[in-house]
Design a binder for these strands. Structure first.
Lengths: 346, 346
DNA sequence: AGCTTCGATGAAAACGTTTACGTTCCACCC
DNA sequence: GGGTGGAACGTAAACGTTTTCATCGAAGCT
């Protein structure tokens, strides 16, 4: 009464449940005539197959799970969007579990996924090797995002943080000719932050050999960027350029400088990393490193889908990095300031 | 071998599967001693219960489904975030299906949810009454978001578009004293757009009676806002204030005016709707209507959870609207321009 | 000692599907 | 006309749980 099952359809159509299953799934073995009859009855009763029951025996859920940390804004939505877009194209669905903070929380989330997903995409700072080993079913295909982990166990997809930072510093040093380039770094325990800092160091050593490095620690927040800006002012000596390890800090820094009456980019150039939407609207428009997050999500899903199709062979689980490139706007002094030419609609 | 089931645990611990189930679920009926033995074995074997199997008999999935249209940016991520946060607090999980464009696509998504979710949150322009009737299992608790639908069938949660628009026009007309207020409207077939337009009309009739309305049609995109701005320029007569039905159009309009050398807000005031993050960073900072999207998601989930707990009684499925209020920044001429004071960190 | 009561445990049914395996029936071929 | 083959369909097992019911034993009571 309350919910209609395959048995109801079978009874109503005067056939066995097996035939209903065959007819509705398009596996052969039923007359065109009976198939039609069954389909009609199913439609009339508004029968909808029970997913859990089906996947219990099929061993396929056509669903993939995404484990994400509690994250804000654009990065999150773009990532989900990329994953979901690719998933939909492959007829897969998406079970997301974001917004978990503790490691125990994440473990619980992971456990409840068992039996509900065919594979996992995991982006989590807490997900080290032992965590995965204890909480991930042996045989569940999994792709890691932005993880320091290596090895044959799981494929890993990373943003090319090192390359992006390197390219930005090169732009600042070589094309703009700045030598005194400060870094507003991210938190120590953050993998992205580490990579970006390393890229900065490498590029400085390469393009401005002998220069003394200037690094201010931030936390990827606008406020910490603001503080970094104030700190620079207080030190008495401003650098010629500031490279912030993400856009929010760059913006915070920008505001601090602006408030203090320092002209950007004439006196100090400021650049960021991520290319969040705000970047192109702020004045001066922010020069930054663009990373195509949608593509990251898409790639992750496609990698995972490949794993699902090919039982285990093929697809070497090598680490893969997703390219990013610097997009030059006004805040680095590349163009005469005052003219914004960003009309790119979304 | 590949996956360990409850039977393996039972065999290894020398008990029946029933006892394992009891021990692990904390239902009474097992000695503390055997419970410990079972728990140990389960941990050693790294047993994880199979969700689908469990929910097949339990009739509970502890998962709720979200059906969303293909949407961009902040709105999407904030909504998901709100839902997920509240869900996690209640021990529920989230199955999202976004990025569907066609109605057929949405129907398919809805059908595959059967048996995988305990309830649904639906935000979709396509979800009219007949669509829901044919694709939604009779007994599945459902909450509608931003839907024109009314009636006892489903609870509906709406943004107070009408009230927000009304309040904005009131601010422009009464507190700022502008009389020539133009509207850059959203697409005709969009429910939010309709409501906002109505709010505008009502407020104009109330506060600037007799004034001739000036409405330019847009599509909620930056580019259409830009075009609207150009159109106003071309008409030869600029309004004193422009109220765009969302922030992206307001920004597009702003850029068009700035490019033409029109000073905002001295010559023309510009305001928007949504309070996307960009709004406070653009120059001049945008006066807009803030809607707490996170709260919308949270409320939706809590409403749904109430439905799940109380079989059907209680909780009158009345329509509910979520308040929003105007946040005054620089673009409406409220403060002396040039000073941005937005340090609010997230 | 015999009876009842109660707690711990196991056996088995149930959830709603898919699918391997039989069975039936009809057409076809020598 | 009897055998062969194959298509259509039904029966039942299986998937991994939870839960009802029965069983068993020990403890408590008279």
């Amino acid at each position: 009464m309350t919910t209609v099952t395959i048995k109801d359809v079978a009874r109503e159509a005067g056939v066995s449940v097996a035939s209903v299953s065959r007819a509705l799934n398009g596996t052969g073995g039923v007359t065109a005539e009976t198939e039609k009859r069954i389909r009609d009855v199913a439609a009339r009763l508004r029968y909808i197959p029970h997913g859990a029951a089906r996947s219990l025996i099929t061993r396929r859920t056509h669903t993939i799970g995404a484990l994400l940390p509690d994250m804000y804004g654009e990065f999150f939505s773009e990532l989900i969007r990329g994953i979901d877009l690719a998933a939909r194209a492959r007829g897969l669905h998406l079970l997301v579990s974001s917004a978990h903070d503790g490691v125990e929380d994440a473990a619980a989330a992971l456990r409840t996924m068992r039996g509900r997903v065919d594979g996992m995409i995991i982006l989590s700072p807490r997900a080290d090797a032992s965590f995965l080993h204890t909480n991930l079913p042996e045989s569940l295909p999994t792709v890691l995002l932005n993880s320091p982990l290596r090895g044959p166990r799981y494929p890993v997809l990373n943003i090319d943080n090192h390359g992006g930072a390197h390219a930005m510093v090169r732009h600042l040093a070589v094309e703009r000719g700045y030598r005194d380039i400060a870094l507003v770094a991210g938190p120590h325990d953050n993998y992205d932050a580490q990579q970006r800092e390393e890229g900065y160091r490498a590029a400085m050593a390469e393009f401005v050999p002998g220069a003394s490095l200037r690094i201010i620690r931030g936390e990827f927040t606008e406020e910490s960027g603001y503080r970094a800006g104030c700190e620079m002012m207080a030190s008495g000596k401003l650098p010629r350029a500031v490279f912030a390890a993400n856009d929010m800090m760059a913006i915070g820094c920008l505001l601090a400088l602006r408030e203090a009456g320092v002209r950007v980019p004439e006196e100090v150039a400021v650049t960021g990393f991520d290319d969040i939407p705000i970047a192109r609207y702020i004045t001066p428009a922010l020069t930054t490193v663009q990373v195509r997050i949608v593509d990251l999500g898409r790639s992750a899903l496609e990698r995972l889908a490949a794993l699902l199709d090919a039982p285990d062979q093929a697809t070497p689980p090598e680490a893969d990095t997703l390219g990013c490139h610097v997009v030059v706007r006004d805040s680095c002094g590349a163009r005469p300031p005052g003219k914004t030419s960003t009309k790119k609609a979304r």
